[in-house]
Amino acid sequence: MENALEIKGLKKAYGRFVLDGINLTLPQGCIMGLIGENGAGKSTTIKLILGLIKKSGGEIRILGSTIDNDEESIKEHIGAVIDESCFPDNVCINDINMILKNIYRTWDEQKFLYYADKFSLPVKEAVKNYSRGMKMKLSIAVALSHDSKLLILDEATSGLDPIIRDEILDVFLDFIQDETHSIFMSSHIISDLEKVCDYITFIHEGKIIFCEAKDELKEKFGILKCSEDEFLNIDKSIIKGYRKNSFGVEALVYKDKIKKDYTIDNASIEDIMLYYIKEQ
């Protein structure tokens, strides 16, 4: 089974910011979350995948093909949600349905109207009157209403309240039930990614720090809380990153290397990301 997304040696230079040899692979049927600080290169990576900006080097394969060769046929199977991008002001859901019927070969009107209803989007109201959350929901509805095999989501859940976010995550989990479907999503809301993702890719200052299975990451790392003296006695190779607070020290440690008598808490993906950066 081919990979949904394969990126090798992807490079892009923008003035001082450089995306430096990104490698990642998303197997079909999986969800990958892309995390990183603002300006780390998440949106740049997604724009490169979609061909919105030109790469300086490397290769991107989506569903087995590269975008320059097979542009329109691959895009039939991609559903993208790009932060801030939407339909022009004066169109409404009915108009959008009519427009997209003429753009996507596999446009499914019923599905679209179903999602519009499920997300409580007013059918006759012009897009200019939509809130940010509504525009996001609209983009998501569009992404799901044709034969999408890969959803590419750039901050698709930001600006949404926790209730609707939960509903949308359920929709994504439903989408992934089909083994030929995959999702690549970037988000700051790491708790969302933790709920649904199989893989987590962490990008920092244009480089991939890790690209691993979420469960493996959580198995690998734990949080150690101890006093400063105790901390000084610990072998530094076990520690991934640490921070001092008024009670002592908190450190991200490799679970299998730390001695058994210490109490180790579970590390969330957010913890892992924060401590990795603190190590830098």
Binding site: E72, S73, S85
Partner: peptide
């Protein structure tokens, strides 16, 4: 331009 439509359109089967 206001809706940043071009970016969105190019994710569709449109050249």
């Amino acid at each position: 331009e206001k809706a940043k439509w071009d970016k969105y359109a190019l994710s569709m089967p449109v050249s």
